[in-house]
Design a protein around this nucleic acid. Structure first.
Lengths: 223, 223
DNA sequence: GGTGGTTTGTCAAAACTTTGTCGACAAATG
DNA sequence: CATTTGTCGACAAAGTTTTGACAAACCACC
């Protein structure tokens, strides 16, 4: 996930970076409020970790400005132990959670995850990606090399399974079950649908992704 | 606000009571998990404070049972300092926040308020916006490109869900549940309502927002 | 390496399903 | 009792799925 850390204490920033970056999260840093606000306004983060006491512009003001600019990114405030009343202010300014310094980075991670689970599209499926082919199961949008493609329901079902299983081979019988449920057709109509799917996702492009595995099934993968 | 405190340590319960009751909050108490669950299921609280270690039934199980019974009341977990991993479990079970013992009651209050604010924001306010289409769930005012529009109740329900889910596709069955509850009509009357909604929000404008996804449902989005 | 049966690719037309449109009428609202 | 709202049926339009027919590719075996 993509995070913005606004914190003037280098030790704390590095501590966070050391823990979260190895876990695959992408972090941006700002050392004061003005810089942090600029970054937050110009980029799209999954969450923002915001120190309360910052040079140039304090955390509460940063948070207020964000909300005033209609940016709903979850914000976690960092406060010193004796600033409990500031927390109330922080929540008033639109913060979503806070942590008392000194805090464990693991605790930060737990709270980040809780926030994202709550706010960030609850119950949504992940976008499927194979090479330059994208399929979003929520919007049902399909695109390849950035160009949008139109699929009908059967084609979507086939594509979804092929992408989920990629780069593995999916057996014909399995694809038939996906489309027609427990009573598959006795003729070989799957062929026609694979053909039409191929026409849409492969025909107009140089490299082919959907490969036939003779007398087994199909597989979607690069090369 | 009406709170349920599930905690086997009398000192802690009393501490909470002494601080919150004078402020006008109404508290109920349970000394073990079974009792707590029973109270939570039979009454309507604004929030529940739930100890992790409880006699008879632990806090995580209580929380899980609540969610399984479709009760969305905010839950704050109380954990000992060395139970950080349990927090992950707690969030997984559906808890909304947690506090590390020993905690200040003032901090509990801050977190309770934050939770309720979050809930209220979700349940009541928040104007919905998709492209130049606006819907305020409080005033029930709908407008597009600044021009006010008049919707009837069913159209509003449909629009609200479509806007909340935008740009995702919303399935017909889901829209039917939104409008008619658990027993959807056996005919296809949703079509007529979507048609009339479309007449109001799209017909008089150049760009169309409400798109049909054949044999799936509808989606509200730009382009 | 040729041979023949099997599997796969191709495509257009036919059969079918879902959706848009709208007028008529019943039910709810105030 | 007038107006708004919700339900229904009918038909045309749009979109989807199946069918069937032939050609090309594949594979096993002589």
């Amino acid at each position: 996930m993509k995070l913005l850390i606004v914190e003037d204490n280098r030790d704390i920033s590095e501590n966070i970076a050391d823990y979260l970056e190895p876990k695959g999260h992408q972090l941006d840093f700002a050392g004061d409020g003005v810089q942090g606000l600029a970054l937050a306004l110009n980029d799209d983060f999954d969450a923002i970790v915001l120190d309360l006491n910052l040079p140039r512009l304090d955390g509460i003001s940063v948070c207020q400005q964000l909300r005033a600019n209609n940016i709903a990114t979850p914000v976690i405030m960092l406060t010193a132990r004796d600033q409990l009343d500031d927390k109330l202010l922080g929540f008033g300014a639109g913060a979503d959670d806070y942590l008392v310094k000194p805090f464990s980075v693991k605790e930060l991670e737990v709270r980040l995850q809780a926030l994202l689970k709550r706010l960030h599209h609850f119950g949504e499926a992940e976008e499927l990606v194979v090479a330059d082919l994208h399929y979003n199961p929520n919007t049902l949008a399909v695109s390849r090399a950035g160009r949008p493609l139109e699929l009908n329901p059967i084609q979507r079902k086939l594509l979804a399974r092929l992408m989920q299983s990629s780069p593995n081979v999916v057996k014909r019988a399995e694809l038939e079950t996906i489309v027609w449920g427990d009573d598959p057709p006795d003729n070989d109509i799957l062929r026609t649908h694979v053909y039409s799917l191929r026409n849409i996702i492969d025909k107009p492009f140089a490299s082919k992704l959907l490969h036939t595995v003779h007398s087994v099934g199909y597989c979607l993968a690069e090369k």
